[in-house]
Amino acid sequence: MSSIDYTLHLADNALILGHRNSEWTGHGPILEQDIALSNIALDLIGQARYLYQYAARQTGKPEVTEDSLAFLRDAWDYRNCLLVEQANGDWGKTILRQFFFSAYQFFFYERLQHSTDNELAAIAEKSLKEVTYHLRWSSEWTIRLGDGTEESNRRMRAAMDQLWKFTGELFIPASYEKIAAAVDLSSIKPLWEERVSEVLLQARLEKPAAGWGQTGGKEGRHTEELGYLLAEMQFLQRAYPGNEW
């Protein structure tokens, strides 16, 4: 089985979250943190580029490029998990979304750097350094905001309420994740749960009771959010097709 879909899934996760984070650039609550989140956006878009370039090479078609993959696929061909496409909301929701994803991506890349696919392994190894920082930064902010004031704790609980239902999908393998090069998601799930529990405890936040989760993003069935994101992101490539930029 080809690993194109697998590579695209990883690329889409990185691009969509990077794009969401970049919506904050210039509007952050503190100048230093505006810079920090923009930095994470840059790292994620950088990872996405390596992954799209690799996916493009795997197709063997010269007309397929990182940009055609990012700008000319519609939502149903996007394979990112639902978590990353969720709207930014307030700073608390953005932080919690980043924390859930970074915790996942950290353990994921730790495994992927030993993948039988050398290219993916190399990208994972390089990205792991960045994600280590993302995880530290988002953990610290989750704790700060959960523990800080009554208002910040209330906002974090609201964010939890909105986001928790998308976390289960991270660990449900999609059809294209059954290849030898793929990370065994069941092996990282307990690591993720342990890390999340540790941080939430310090943040005085509780995990909601296990309940029905939302899934489908990894198979191309997305929430309403993604269409708007793509409409904005793809506008120039769609309005002026075939141009160099």
């Binding site: 970049s22 650039t25 210039g26 840059l42 878009i45 580029r49 990012a70 904005e232 120039l236 490539q237």
Partner: peptide, 26 residues
């Protein structure tokens, strides 16, 4: 400039524009 980050026409342009706006914050 941040106005156009989400509409930048290629991944490379998007990354460069974020980096530029981030430099301005710096």
């Amino acid at each position: 400039e941040a106005n156009w980050i989400t509409r930048a026409p290629s991944l490379k342009r998007k990354a460069t524009l974020i980096a530029k706006v981030q430099d301005e914050a710096g």
